[in-house]
Amino acid sequence: MKQFNPIWALKAVFLLFILLGIGLACFAFCTINIPFGAWIIIGAFILVPSFLLYSLSYRIPISAKTQKRIDERRSILQFEELRFLIIDPLFDQTTIVEWDNIAQINYHNTNITDYEAVFCIELEKLPEVIMHQNRWWLNRWANKKGIVSKKVTIKEDTKNTNRFLDQISRHLLVTIDDEIFVDKRKGHLLSTIKVEDVNPRTITEHWKPVNNTETTVLFYKRKSSKY
């Protein structure tokens, strides 16, 4: 049984607004003395949902400068002997997680919206959170004490995530199965293009995707954990 995909529902809503805008435009063309403000509203009904629908369906290219700014805001993992740190520039805080405070670790990935993979960590007690200096004014106003929770999430795009598995194996004595991380979006291989006359050699594969694939794996659970 296929899972409900909220993105398709959202696209349907945007399409409904676009059709409504087109209907209003047709009505306006057949009506005399339509005020200018009404045309702005009609145009918004068509253009704004169209832009959002396009954004959901296709990635909008961004400049190198914008990409650099995005990379600078990505979270960073920093490992120590008894703990690891999650440095979050977006919220101007650092979360300190001690290895002996971990109750459970789950790995979860899904492509319901876009491909996303996260480590979900359940803790026995609240972690220590350190606020950064010169915090952004909105973070100072909205999160005076920072975001503190017994549930910590590490996204796949976090820097140094590729080292996290080795650290789990070392500190929690867990054996990791590499098959867990196979990209399950791939369905059937449609074509393969190899370019031999360049260095390095490039291979491009075209796969028929599998919709609504979802995987949740329990990596670690402390025997005394309440989760």
Rank of each mutant, 00 (worst) to 15 (best):
H108E: 09
Y220F: 15
L77F: 10
I147R: 14
A25L: 15
P89Q: 06
C26G: 11
N211T: 03
N139L: 08
F17Y: 12
R83K: 14
E156C: 01
F17G: 01
V129H: 09
L172T: 00
H188L: 01
Y115T: 01
V195R: 14
K186G: 02
F79W: 05
E214S: 06
K159D: 11
S191Y: 11
L190Q: 10
F219K: 01
K151V: 04
N109W: 05
K145N: 15
W137D: 13
F17K: 07
I193V: 09
Q133M: 14
Y54N: 12
K144E: 13
G43L: 09
Q133S: 15
V182K: 06
A38R: 08
F4L: 10
A25G: 05
D114C: 05
W8D: 02
I96D: 07
V148M: 11
P6F: 12
A142V: 02
K221I: 03
T110K: 03
F36A: 12
S149H: 11
W8V: 02
I87S: 05
V129G: 09
P49H: 06
D197F: 08
L173I: 03
V174W: 06
T158E: 11
I193E: 11
Y115I: 00
N199L: 11
Y115V: 01
V48M: 10
T175G: 00
E72K: 13
